[in-house]
Nucleic acid binder design. Structure first.
Lengths: 345, 345
DNA sequence: CTGAAAGCGCTTACAG
DNA sequence: CTGAAAGCGCTTACAG
């Protein structure tokens, strides 16, 4: 591909500015060691020359890699379907790019691969910190990250061990809002189409659901677990609606499954919201392009990502970090929820 | 966060194996300079010590960064909605990880930012090559990448200049398949809800559409441009269906807009496919979770991504590369297409 | 086929 | 506040 383009080095800047390389480095990194006047002169020379420090050289000399790793466990079945991650990534990016941090994205098909990726990132010093999603009950990644001394932030409910800080939104509160609303409409049999049972956030939601069902004295509160994919959401819906005392309302753990469930209900001849109310977790455009539009638990996913990035960068800077709770998802009532049939107001 | 974990260096491997550092480097990189026996011994020592060469040191010494850059231009309105990119990325990743290449993802809000990202990547030697999506008619990124001597691959139709190879699928063929099918069903007024007119792939599609309309002698072939978002798709649908001689079929440039258009048709009291046939470009689960299920142009997006990654890695390896055509999208007829109302068979 | 040496472009104590 | 020097961990000609 031809010789690489000649790039100015720190030497060029130092020579042009008439100072030492060290002075240039200090000036560029905002560290003490140069006078303000000199710093300004150096900065303007660097600007003029179009100088950007070589990432590799910088890293080798002990400076941070200026990159964050996100390893995503994606089973083939859910590929390309969850708007959540695209929005999350866009929030991460927004914050990272402010500080010129890159996002290293890696998708893995299984957990062992993910561990291998962390080890490699650690050994190669490819990233300065990692974000951890979809944490399991006893997640082997967490002790591994501690062993590797990796600054890390969990996206999701704070894990039991507690050594790694997390950014989370209180799903129990949100679930309460959704189920409370359905109960207030008069629903007594409310089903839950949940996500992957091994995930900590799934357990938070299903525990909150069971708890609420008890407190509200619901007649039935069946829960079906899925892999978050729309076919699985459709299957779970058929199962729940096929039971003798079928639920009159269903809460779905994501938007994709709620839309799939809506289609299943319609194919079973049930009208929504007449015969069945539907609530989707995570609002997205697809909740508004189906008929009826879906009542959803809306949250600022991009903001969630920004917050996670900010917290991780604080950890990377060596600051002590603690769990951060972002605002919980709130219910956006739309046309897919109504009082159950047979009940009059 | 404590001291970094002590990692074995090439010196440790050399000492343990009783050879020089150079020998270890040659052995690890599969270059001539060591006997096969020595190579094996070195490799097993490296394995035993858990040695992974430091990415920064390697890069600084002139070796590739082992990373590929993907800068995505995402206007806020389409954030998180296009399944296409998630699938593409997953294909890229699948191929890159085979060769231990990382994917550096960067989302930008405008074109100037994207140019700045390329320059930075070039100067910092952060990536060995870049992938270019959504190419414009006279795209300023292409000459910039040439100027920077960046190995690059365009994902989409080969640009006019021709210096940068592309991986593409022949959208004209696919459009012909879709419109030909609609015409065969008896439709004479077929509308096109297209994407962003500045994109080269949009122009390929709308040119093919206009050409076909002429050859098939269609009565009307209105085209509406959008930003690929579902609200914009809905607006375009309203506009096209509000015309006096409204189309009896619409072809959408993505799945999201087709679903939005379906909802608009239903809200206007038009039955699909009775009053309006709908075809979606890019098949995804959401095409199958709406009612009626959408006829779609199906293609192997993951495979598209894999192919793009392979081609770019070939360029990074210094090989000459040429355009690669992947298989065009093919029509998957479903319930959203039928002969137009009033026509009998 | 092997080993010693230079050098990649930075950062950071350290002495002035 | 500044400058000279060492060193980060590799790769790669170059001489043996």
């Amino acid at each position: 591909m031809g010789a690489p383009v000649k790039r100015p080095t720190i030497n060029d800047v130092a020579r042009t500015a008439g100072v030492s390389r060290g002075a240039v480095s200090y000036a560029l990194n905002g560290r003490p060691g140069v006078s303000e006047a000199t710093r300004q002169r150096i900065l303007s020379v660097a600007e003029e020359l179009g100088f950007h420090p070589d990432r590799a050289a910088r890293a080798l000399a002990g400076a941070p890699a200026k990159a964050i790793g996100l390893s995503l466990y994606r089973p083939a079945s859910t590929l390309g379907v969850e708007p959540f991650f695209m929005e999350l990534i866009s929030g991460l990016e927004a914050e990272l790019s402010l500080r010129s941090y890159a996002l290293l994205l890696h998708m893995v098909a299984d957990r062992e691969q993910e561990a291998a990726v962390y080890r490699r990132w650690g050994r190669e010093r490819a990233v300065d910190g990692v974000l951890v999603c979809d944490v399991l009950e006893h997640d082997p990644r967490l002790p591994l990250l501690e062993e590797l001394r990796f600054p890390a932030v969990v996206i999701g409910p704070p894990p039991a061990g507690g050594a790694i800080a997390s950014v989370w939104s209180d799903d129990a509160v949100s679930l309460q809002e959704a189920v409370g609303y359905l109960a207030a409409l008069g629903h007594r049999r409310i089903g839950h189409v949940a996500g992957i049972p091994e995930f900590a956030h799934t357990r938070v939601r299903s525990a909150a659901f069971a708890d609420l069902a008890r407190r509200l004295g619901l007649e039935a509160a069946p829960c079906a677990y899925t892999d978050y994919s729309s076919p699985d959401g459709a299957r779970a819906t058929r199962r729940l609606l096929g039971a003798p005392d079928r639920p009159t309302a269903l809460v779905y753990d994501n938007d994709i499954m709620a839309v799939a469930g809506l289609a299943v209900a319609q194919e079973m001849g049930l009208s929504v919201p007449g015969d069945l109310s539907v609530v989707a977790w995570d609002d997205s455009p697809i909740c508004r392009i189906v008929h009826p539009e879906l009542t959803a638990l809306t949250r600022d996913i991009t903001g969630y990502g920004r917050q996670a990035a900010r917290l991780l960068l604080a950890a990377v800077d060596g600051r002590e970090i603690a769990d951060v709770a972002v605002e919980a998802a709130h219910l956006t009532p739309r046309a897919s929820t109504a009082p159950p049939a047979g009940r009059l107001y």
